[in-house]
Design a protein around this nucleic acid. Sequence first.
DNA 1: CCGAATCCTGTTTGATACTG
DNA 2: CAGTATCAAACAGGATTCGG
Lengths: 101, 101
Amino acid sequence: MAARDALEIVQGKWRIPIVISLTFGDKRFGQIQRDIPDISPKMLSQELKALEVNKLLTRTIHDTMPVTVEYSLTPLGKSMNKLIEDILDWGVYFRQEVLEK
Amino acid sequence: MAARDALEIVQGKWRIPIVISLTFGDKRFGQIQRDIPDISPKMLSQELKALEVNKLLTRTIHDTMPVTVEYSLTPLGKSMNKLIEDILDWGVYFRQEVLEK
DNA sequence: CCGAATCCTGTTTGATACTG
DNA sequence: CAGTATCAAACAGGATTCGG
């Protein structure tokens, strides 16, 4: 089932939020962390790695001083755009129907 | 963030598969279990309850002999349709791009 | 600033057996 | 048929400390 493959990538509290953060442009570690206030550096580091392994994003080291590391979505990562929009849309709908009634 | 609300509902290995199973019609406990071969009765029971609490499905007891219980998506549950399609689509794409290359 | 490495905890999940 | 009960394993997440 294709759902299983997709779900495995998307599972966990943080991956979708990370991808969302990067849809608005390439970011550095600290910038992503600011977008997702309650993520610990450990989890961010760990999830970024997982997403890199699955080819959703790339990690580029800029040899500046001090070193900066930039994260950027791959085309595959960007292809989640539609999926993410639907998640957001559905989240809004769900909120109206359940949380606010 | 609306993403958070949606994600909380959708999280876990089994909820999406359960909703998928029910999009093809109302089902009974054992039928869902057959659709999702590796789910344990415990997990199925637990996740069905969670989905019921979140108003994604209803549980109807038919007073037959023996008793049968039928699960059926609510309009809110059905509203996940588009989301689920996109998950499946993206899963197929992901498979092509990563798993088969 | 951008992480890596360890250690530790609670929740989630699973295997299995059993019940009305 | 439609679940519960119990026990164990796995995993996610957090706290803290350290390094270039």
